[in-house]
Amino acid sequence: MIANTKEVKDEGFDIKRSAEEVRNLSFKDHICIGCGICESTCPVDAINVAEIGPIVREEVDMPKIDIDEDKCVLCGMCSGLCPVDALDFTIDSEPISNIVSYPHYISSAEIDDDTCIYCQRCEIACPRDSITIARSLPERSDLVTGEIEADEETCIHCGICDEMCPTDAIDVDRTPGEESIEIDKDKCVYCLLCKKICPVDAIKAACRICSYGDYDLNPEDAVTTGSSFIDDETCVKCGWCQEICPVDAAKVKKQYEGTLDIDEDKCTVCGTCIDVCPCDVLSFPESPGPATIVDNIHKDEQYCIHCGACERACPVDAIDVKITNVDYTPTKSKSWIDKFEALKN
């Protein structure tokens, strides 16, 4: 964390900033994806981003970026352009994203709870584990009703029904002298499997739904309710949730749009890019057989946020990531506009 009040020492100058305004720059290592955008954007060359490959492979244990406190003037530009908000810059405890004079790229990820069917596909797909879908299912006993009864007199306690029951609703105690059969009606779904399999016809059962059509099924009871949550801190706006959502409840606006190209002639298929990619865009293609060496890297470009972390990490310069579009909040600062436009090169 770098905070006011700071000194700059240069050529005999010894300057101290002493305004009451407090500026803070803090860095969240667990959020950083090592893309290097901050390094290239820092106007005073105060930021140095480490080789990200060895860090994500846990070969070395070091912070992903290093900020030279002596050089940093707390301008906030790194924080404004970081695609994953790993750099927090605040002025008097207020994040610069709330300050009008600081422009910020526009990105978002949302799940519409009115449309969401709580299938949890996005939660499973999210490469950053940012999504939590909590759901509550309707009571099974509200949806399926019927009658079931075991005739203890007839039952020989063979246990076949216990073994066959798909919902574990039957418990047969086969201890000699203590034989019993119990059916848990809360678990039973009246599939009648026990009735069919019983060798001595000891079970009497009927399903009301089958017997009476829709008689007892109230469709309103079959609704799954729940809630969705996206952790904005870890979410990288990659679009996996949007792509995988079967009902279009997830909407993602990426921070940086662009292209991702891999030069297959140069690529040595080392897998470094796969390791560093924060969005699971890159993968080894399915190998056609055992011990087959794959000859290219597979990419799912629709999930790419064009951060350039792979390009930076590639040991043979085979990857070319280009940003073609950035939407940002309006600014009159030509310098900021230039910075946003410069990202496109």
Partner: peptide, 10 residues
Amino acid sequence: CLGCGVCVVA
């Protein structure tokens, strides 16, 4: 100018 205001507080 970035509008960062560093000069203002410096």
